[in-house]
Structures are given as C-alpha cells and as structure tokens.
Design a binder for these strands. Structure first.
Lengths: 170, 170
DNA sequence: ATATAATGTTTGGTGTATCAAACATTCACA
DNA sequence: TGTGAATGTTTGATACACCAAACATTATAT
C-alpha cells in the first residue's frame, strides 16, 4: 500500500517531528501551527503534507486535521529521540548553553544514524556510571575549558576526592 | 568584489572540501576528479563550480584548472577541520568503526557550528589530559557498551589501577 | 599534424523546497 | 443562518542540485 522505505529528507523529518509534538500537545496537528513552528508559510506546508500522505506517514485529507500513521509515528519518535539525546549530550556533557545545544541538535539529528546515537547514549551512561567519571567529573570540565591551562593543584584535589569516594567500600 | 557571506549549502561545502583535498594531492583540482569523489556526473560539477566562482571562493575559468581563493581556502579548511575532529571523536571516543565514523562525520560536519566543534575539541583533550580518564578509560568503554551490565569487579580493578597510577607522585 | 580519447560544458528535464498571492473552505458569532 | 475572519489550498515563480545526453575543447599518441 503505502510507499516503502524511501529515506526522508531533512525537511520531511522536521515535519514529522513537528506533527508528533503538536499531536502530543493538541491531539491533532494544524497546518497553521506546523507552519509557525517550522517558520514557513502555510502554502509550503500543504505541499509537504500531501507528500507525507502519499508516503503513508500521515493521514491527510484536504481541510481536515492531520495525524500520524503508525509508521509515521514510529519515524517521528525516532527523530525526536535523536534530537533529545543529542541535545542532552551537547548541554549535559559538552556544557553548551541550551540555545546553542538546541539549534545544533536540530541540525545534527538529521546527520547521525541510529548506531551512532545509540553509542552516544551508552557513552553518556558510561560517564555517569563509571566511578572514575560521574557528575563531578563533568562539572570539572568547566575548569578545563575556561582556563588557559590545567591547574595541577586542582587536578590533585579532584583526584583525591574521587579516590576518597571510591576507595574501599562503594 | 566577490559576493559576501551567504551561508554555504551542504553541497557547496562538499565541493570546497573536495577541491582542497585535491589541491593538496595534485596541486590543482580537475572536474573529473571532483565528480568521482562526490559521486556526481561531470556536468553537475560544472554548474557547481560556476556558482562557487561567482561567490568568490574558487578561481574558475572554463576548461582551466580549479584553485581555491584565499576565502575559499579558509572556508574549506574550516570544514575539513570539522570533519577531522568529528571523525576523531566518533572513532577515538565513541569507538565506532572507521567506516561508520567517516560516513557520519561527512554529514555531521555540515550540522555543527564552530562553537560546538571547538568545545568538542576541548572535551577530547579533557578526556586525554584528566588523570581520572585518559586512554585506559576510553578503552574500558568497550567493556561497558558490549556487556549487558557493568561488572563491579572489573570496576574495582579499573579504579584501583587508576589510583595506583595517580596516587602520590604524578 | 591530426584523429581519437579524455575531459569539460551546456541544455533540457526531474524532484525538492520554498514564497507570494489568489483562491477555497471552514469556523465562529452575532 | 449568513457573513467576515481564520485557516487551508493552489498556482506560478525562484532556486538548488542533480542526471542524461548532446556538444565543445583539450590532450595524447602515432
């Protein structure tokens, strides 16, 4: 029935992601809201929706509300997940400000495939779970990137604190 | 003179990057080689080159060799740097295989801005410089992502080894 | 020196994505 | 219930990026 696995364009991924978000907020997505979120005119949305409808990713009847098909919902969910993970990494590990993290995540989500995002998730978990790293190690990254060069004294203190925490019993 | 700072498309960035690589290898870039590297037909290259020429990024005269202008060279260098850094992170930190790292870096380089790439560089340096992490910590990530769940025994050993290395003198 | 191969360009067509603006439909309320 | 406002669609245009294939130029090899 619906067309098969033709890779989506970045634009199409953005539409799906936006429709999913609007569905969650308002049960249903409206052309006007999609247009506003994506910063395009309503006319541009109509064309895109017809396309997604033909691909079997949304239920699209002219002048009616828009909802995702199961396939569309699955794809939209994957994209949304990527976005969230990438933003989490940029903000929570690289310690970039939320705006920078958001705008870059918006673009990066189209460029990273599942294997990479999955590995990134594991990496973030590793940082948090490993006794050698953890939240305080991430916090100490601020000292590293904001100074000209590392402060050996601070490094000793940081190392000692870590050892104290994970010395004998855990 | 040359047109000003109109953001480049992904395609245009790919052309610049490829031209720079070919210049380094062969002194000069030829349409045929650009076409091969980018996987497009020669005809597509001609159009793109005319465009880059009008933007003042390459010296382009029909039927003659192609070289980057200073502006073009600067931009191409920035893109190439991004690519290398991202690939380094994917391969050297996330431990993805070189092919996966390469294909993803190719796409990600167009999506990440300078601030993010710069911070990523600092993060990679942080991992290598911080006594709590370093190469062995990266290697231990393999154990983490390839097992169902962390092995507390291994964690203790790993922590002890780290403490031993960075205990008193450094 | 010239035929032929290799390389580069142009032309016409496709598909995507957008805008502006005319047009159609639906909604809300008076 | 009918009318104006809000919303949605269509049309014609632009721009990008590509292909296929005709065409032009340059290089090479004898």
């Amino acid at each position: 029935m619906g067309a098969k696995e033709t890779a989506l364009s970045e634009s199409q991924e953005d539409y799906l992601e936006t429709i999913l978000a609007l569905e969650k907020e308002n049960k249903v997505a409206r052309v006007k809201d999609i247009a506003e979120r994506l910063g395009v005119l309503r006319g541009s949305v109509s064309g895109a929706l017809k396309n997604l409808g033909e691909k079997g990713l949304i239920h699209y009847e002219p002048y009616s509300f828009i909802t995702l098909t199961p396939t569309g919902k699955r794809l939209a969910g994957e994209i949304t997940r990527r976005h969230a993970i990438i933003k989490d990494f940029l903000e929570g590990v690289l310690l970039l400000n939320p705006e920078k993290a958001e705008t870059n995540a918006c673009r990066m989500e189209h460029a990273m495939d599942k294997a990479v995002v999955d590995r990134l998730v594991q990496f973030i978990e590793y940082i948090h779970d490993c006794p050698r790293t953890g939240p305080d190690w991430i916090e100490a990254f601020v000292n590293y990137y904001s100074k000209e060069k590392p402060d050996p004294e601070k490094c000793r203190e940081c190392m000692a604190a870590c050892m104290a925490r994970h010395g004998a019993a855990e």
